[in-house]
Nucleic acid binder design. Structure first.
Ligand code: FES
Ligand code: FES
Lengths: 144, 144
DNA sequence: ACCATCTCGACCGATTTTGTCAAGTTATAT
DNA sequence: ATATAACTTGACAAAATCGGTCGAGATGGT
């Protein structure tokens, strides 16, 4: 299960996917039904990760750095929920030794999950936001 | 990331995979380095799920109901950690509506995760304990 | 200069995780 | 029958995580 925070992040990016213009945090929050102050945190995390950029001041707001077809679910989930591997010792991006396993080389749990980890990693890093948008009809843009 | 509890459960099943004889909780706990009282809970959950059986009394202990090659990671993870789908609305075994999504049919988040959920589900439900045991043994010094 | 807007860090209640413990119940050997 | 080894159940609790709020500050357009 992904966290609610991650779900908000994904929706926020969807909201940015339609335009090149900066979008206000408040507008995203209202449109996607996300608590505004919480969304601020989330967008800030995404910015620190380099997924989005922001402009301050009068005509400020957030916008995507890359086009939606170049952004994967994996990137967003890693940023918000942390490593997505089932075990720390199987994470390619954020490897950590399992502190309760003596010998990683012969660990049966690690062996058990090797293929699973690879499969989910591939799935998450290959699915982009363009996939979702193409699959569903685009949302109606009633705002001005 | 799977929970520590799930990891314990997997190791416990590995410990049972080698024999048809009942194994004591205490023996599993010592061999796999699991807090005994905690392991009791875990094995009880697995028993309620029908994955293992127990015999009481003098020569008691736990043993597998089915052979290791018929037990998948998915079953164990579902029992201990709950639904393994990334979203409640995508769980085949434990469907739940997403309370923060108005229209599930046009939900872009759900669409985004459809393929990912299917891929991970397949991986988890196809990998059995026999896979890990078979894969692990060749790691011993036989190869050079 | 003004003000809308983003930025940063601290804080907070509820829930989940990771266990512990006490008091049973049951089956087996002798 | 009795002792005993083992499983069973439910309550309890410290620590971490989750979901969210808040105040104060920094920044840029007009
Ligand atoms: S080393 Fe990571 S699970 Fe054993
Ligand atoms: S309906 Fe499940 S994520 Fe929208």
């Amino acid at each position: 299960m992904i966290s609610q925070k991650a779900k908000y992040a994904l929706r926020a990016i969807m909201a940015l996917a339609g335009t090149k213009e900066p979008v206000l945090i408040g507008d995203i929050a209202e449109q996607e039904n996300i608590p505004k102050r919480f969304l601020e945190q989330i967008l800030l995390d995404l910015k620190h990760q380099g997924l989005v950029m922001s402009r301050r001041g009068r005509i400020g707001g957030y916008f995507l750095v890359r086009p939606p077809e170049d952004i994967t679910i994996g990137e967003v989930l890693r940023t918000i929920d942390g490593p997505l591997a089932p075990l720390p010792c199987l994470s390619k991006m954020a490897y950590r030794a399992c502190d309760d396993c003596d010998d990683e080389a012969t660990c049966r749990v690690k062996a058990l999950f090797a293929d699973v980890a690879e499969a989910t990693r591939r799935a998450l890093d290959q699915t982009t936001f363009a996939d979702a948008i193409a699959k569903k009809h685009p949302l109606v843009r009633a705002r001005r």
